[in-house]
């Protein structure tokens, strides 16, 4: 019986070494939850300033686009991004420390590079869209490119990230069909989905 336990522990050691050497497993679900909360708060700020609940779902409070509002939205988006990244790095570092792992190693480098290739491409496309005043296309485009980035990065971390990415892509494509409701889809994608998957991952890997 003792030998059987010995073989089992050998197998689980092999498995753990394979995971640790090829995947970044310090990613904390809590970073997702907080990113989602910030995104919902950001969406509410934009909604409060620019929209009314009259009409079918909700409507712009006025027609036309004012440069001030575009700048306001970009400011809110950057604020949300910085807060989300900061909190994400905090929780992920904490989790890595708890498990005696490094936060900056070959797995996190690979994760970041593979995340950034589609993400930066999408970011540049969104800047071009903003520059050409195709404002309505920006929210769907961010969702699609964010989803593609997650799918690409998922090979180097938890599998759940792949499903989060696929959901974001589908949501982004639907958002392309319903131009004008970008803010709603943005809140679902960056807010609700992050909270959902973050909670799921937290209970799956950190409890």
């Amino acid at each position: 019986m003792e030998t059987k336990d010995q073989y089992l522990s050998e197998i689980s050691e092999i498995k753990s070494m394979m995971e640790r050497s090829s995947r970044f497993i310090s990613l904390s679900g809590l970073s997702g939850v907080f990113a989602g909360i910030y995104a919902l708060f950001g969406a509410w700020l934009v909604f409060d300033r620019m929209y009314t609940t009259d009409g079918f779902f909700y409507n712009r409070a006025y027609s036309g686009v004012y440069n001030n509002d575009v700048l306001f939205m970009i400011g809110v988006a950057i604020g949300v991004l910085i807060l989300a990244l900061g909190t994400g790095i905090f929780f992920t570092t904490r989790k890595a420390k708890k498990h005696g792992l490094k936060i900056w190693d070959s797995t996190s480098k690979r994760l970041l590079i593979n995340l950034l290739i589609p993400l930066a491409t999408g970011g540049i496309i969104c800047l071009i869209l903003l520059d050409k005043h195709y404002y309505a296309l920006v929210a769907p485009a961010t969702l699609v490119f964010y989803g593609l980035s997650l799918v690409n990065a998922s090979h180097h971390t938890y599998r759940d990230i792949r499903y989060l990415g696929l959901t974001q892509i589908v949501l982004g494509l639907v958002a392309f069909m319903y131009i004008g409701y970008g803010l709603l889809f943005w809140a679902i994608g960056f807010g609700v989905l992050h909270i959902l998957y973050g909670t799921l991952m937290y209970f799956k890997y950190e409890r």
Binding site: E13, M17, S106
Partner: peptide, 25 residues
């Protein structure tokens, strides 16, 4: 040996690894 088993497990899922990465792992 556990170290040898560990080296081989890591190399099975990575194209290649350098000495320092193996040491940390």
């Amino acid at each position: 040996n556990r170290v040898r088993l560990g080296i081989m497990s890591a190399l099975m899922v990575n194209e290649r690894l350098n000495f320092n990465t193996l040491k940390e792992l």
